[in-house]
């Protein structure tokens, strides 16, 4: 009996110890960059704390005086407040929302509202299809839009009005009653 309780205690301790260890007293929640380096036969991967490259150049609607304030609802975010007319050709803005492989960042990282996340995500894929962010693509990409397969190698442009359209009307549709 005593043995059993001891085992229980041990098990509890194990769980408890892992639980306790996951709370760290030091400040570990900071922007990090992963560095890989090799020393002899061992590969060392370390997370180096870096300052954010965006902080100094950051633009927020609160700081712009002339901008008319957007009425605050629960679905507004910093992008709604800025009220920018972003097109899919504005790669300097869209490239801030992607990883180095050209993938759109999730909403918990971008901090956008649902509507803006959808809009920016679609525009990122438009820019990628048009080959405008060819340097932000997976490593196996040939980094040249003209070397893509079949119909993808030709220039394509997009209409931003189609983003929230349920169905793109065809020219024949206007004759339908």
């Amino acid at each position: 009996m005593s043995f059993l309780t001891r085992a229980n205690c041990l098990a509890k301790n194990v769980i408890l110890s892992t639980f306790v260890r996951s709370i760290s007293t030091t400040k570990h929640l900071q922007l990090k960059e992963l560095h890989e380096r090799k020393e002899g036969s061992t590969l060392i991967v370390e997370g180096v704390t870096v300052p954010s490259p965006h902080t100094e150049l950051l633009i927020r609607a609160e700081k712009i005086k002339d901008l008319a304030p957007v009425e605050k609802t629960e679905h507004t975010c910093y992008m709604c407040a800025l009220d920018l007319d972003v097109k899919h050709t504005d790669v300097l803005i869209l490239s801030q929302f992607v990883r180095t492989d050209g993938c759109m960042l999730p909403r918990r990282i971008t901090g956008l509202c649902r509507r803006q996340q959808k809009k920016v995500g679609k525009m990122v894929s438009m820019a990628q299809k048009a080959g405008l962010m060819i340097n932000l693509t997976p490593s196996y990409c040939k980094k040249d839009p003209r070397q893509r397969y079949a119909y993808k190698k030709f220039n394509t442009y997009f209409d931003e009005n189609t983003i929230f359209m349920k169905k793109i009307p065809k020219p024949v549709d206007k004759f339908k009653r």
């Binding site: 954010s52 965006h54 950051l58 300097l92 929302f97 180095t100 990282i109």
Partner: peptide, 14 residues
């Protein structure tokens, strides 16, 4: 170029 998006504090850059 002016930035719109800011990374969250605990983000790991890739």
């Amino acid at each position: 170029y002016p930035k719109v998006m800011e990374y969250p504090e605990d983000y790991v850059l890739k």
